[in-house]
Every structure is written in C-alpha cells, then in structure tokens.
Design a protein around this nucleic acid. Structure first.
Lengths: 154, 154
DNA sequence: CACGATTACATTGTGCACAATCTAATCGCC
DNA sequence: GGCGATTAGATTGTGCACAATGTAATCGTG
C-alpha cells in the first residue's frame, strides 16, 4: 500500500493511480456527467449546455463574458455551444445596442419552458449520488476549498 | 441501501448553479487539470496521457482493455491517445502472439525514464490542493462512494 | 470441423475544453 | 477629435470523451 514516497504534513504522494485524489475527482466528474446524459438527452441538452441554461434561467439576459465567469469556461467553449443552443431554438444572441462589443444571450420562450421539465434533473442526480446530507455538505465544502486553493496556487 | 432521498431528508435540489454539488465537482476537476497542465507540459504530456503512463509504470505491459478498465475510458479515447504516446516515443504497441485481437501496450526506455521526472508531479499537485490530511481522506472516501453509487444507479 | 456468437480493437462523428491568435468596438487621455 | 490601449468576442487547431458502427480474431457448441 503506502511505501516511502513524497510526503508533507504526513501525507504521501505516490505514482499509484488509486492513491491519487486527482484521479478520484476526474473519475467522479465523468461518472456524474454520464449519469446526467440520459436525463439531459430527453431535454435535447448536453451537460455544459444545461449549465449555460442554469445561468440563463437564473439571470435572464446575460453577456457571454458573465456566463464564462459563472462556469469558468472561455469563449472557445461558449461561442459554439451557445450557437448550438440558438440553432436548437432555445436561446437568442444579440449585440447590446450601447456597446456593440457585448453579445447578450437570452432565452426564447421554448428555452424558458424547458426550465419546468428540468426541475426533475437535479433531484434525480442528487438521488443517484446517494450521499448522506452530511457527506453532501462536506463534499461541497471540500471541493470549494480545493478549487479555490488550486486556482490561487497557479 | 439508503433509499430515496430527493428533498425528502432535509436536502433541497434547486436549479441554482451554486447549489449543485455536480457543478462543484465539474469545476474542481477542471481546475485541477489546469493546475497539472504546466507541470505536464514540461514532460510533454497531457493529463489523460499521464494517467495512461501511471498504469504502465505500475503494471508494465498492459492490454488496452485493462488500461480502459483502470481509467474508465473507452477505445475511442484510448486508441488515438496511445498512438500519440507511441508517436512521442514513449510507448510501444504490439499484438499478443497467442491472441491477435489483443494489443499490448508497453513502455519504451524513454517512457520508463519519464517516471523519475514525474515523481515531483503528485507532490506539487497535492501541495497545490492545500487540503488537510483529514479533508484529503474525507474527499477520497466521499468521491469513491459517490462514483460507486452513481455508476450503480445507471 | 462449421458457424454463429463473442471479444478486442479501430473508425467516424459530435461536442466539449483550452491555448493562441485575430478582429472590431470602445475607452482614456491628451 | 485623434490614437494607442483595453475589452468582448470569434476563429483555429489540438486533444480528449463518448456513442455508434465496423472488422478481424477467437471461442463455443453441435
């Protein structure tokens, strides 16, 4: 199991796959995304598209930059993604009149209506994760700490 | 088994981005991968390529199927990835003589040598995550629980 | 041994992620 | 008003992820 390896604060860092929190994180993230897939397929969405709609449902009309800030995604990801939402008739893109650099993304009626059908999604996912309320809270706390630390250490 | 959950035992599932553990997980995973990038760039690797090398360093000569089982990745991801490792001179691909269906992946000398330089990577990442030993253990436990539950609920 | 089923892998196509580079609109400052 | 710097966004290219489909080798059973 744990031999002589890099250590700090009594923690050991090996090159063994199963020892790595990073891999556990990466695997968990992909497993959850896969669990989302059949649910989101029914809505005609991918997981990142669903995330963009969460932002739009919450805030209404939003510049792409703010969507990127909320989701930590860049234009290279968002520009084509939002164009696909537009092609699907769920979102609209329009330049802000008083600043033509900014593209405001807003919901069509169809995109707004999807919110009702999406209500069941987080419930189903929360259920599938099968964590106790305490573990759920702990996971949120640790992941936020980790994300903040990792971002700050760059 | 823990039974049904939903909003039922005191947890609430909203459509608000910040409430969602799934998003925290997704964001944390990408943040960690980004933190890996500069470290792995020095080795000429991407994160998934690094994961494949972890498996090879640990087990030596491995069929693609087993690499996929260890990393939970399919052939569509692994076939081109391993071909890039081969093109970089780090890995070799050869058919198993007694079963020509199987492709055994093994390390070149150069791929083996990279292990020494990679030792510093998990240490740096563990350091950047900045979790206490207790939180680190808790995170591993919760993520494994979550991954197992989510996979089983499909 | 024949032959359908299975297995291991490859290929194709779509959609993220993200770095690097580019364009056009706006702002700051004189 | 003129002009360099900044800002918002688009584009291009590489590399995952993963579904769907295809192919060749092997196995199982009669």
């Amino acid at each position: 199991m744990s031999g002589s390896r890099g250590a700090r604060d009594g923690q050991e860092y090996s090159l063994l796959l199963d020892d790595q929190l990073c891999f556990a994180l990466y695997a968990a993230s992909r497993a959850v995304t896969q669990r989302y897939r059949p649910l989101l397929d029914d809505l005609g969405l991918t997981y990142p598209q669903y995330l963009v709609l969460l932002v739009l449902w919450e805030y209404g009309s939003v510049p792409i930059k703010e969507i990127g800030a909320a989701l930590q995604l860049d234009y290279g990801t968002l520009t084509p993604l939002i164009k696909r939402l537009e092609a699907a008739g769920l979102a609209r893109r329009e330049r802000r009149p008083d600043d033509e650099r900014t593209v405001l993304v807003s919901l069509t009626d169809e995109g707004g209506d999807l919110r009702v059908r999406a209500r069941a999604v987080p419930v189903a996912i929360g259920d599938a994760m099968g964590l106790s309320p305490e573990d759920h809270r702990e996971a949120m706390r640790i992941l936020r700490t980790l994300t903040a630390q990792v971002a700050a250490s760059g």
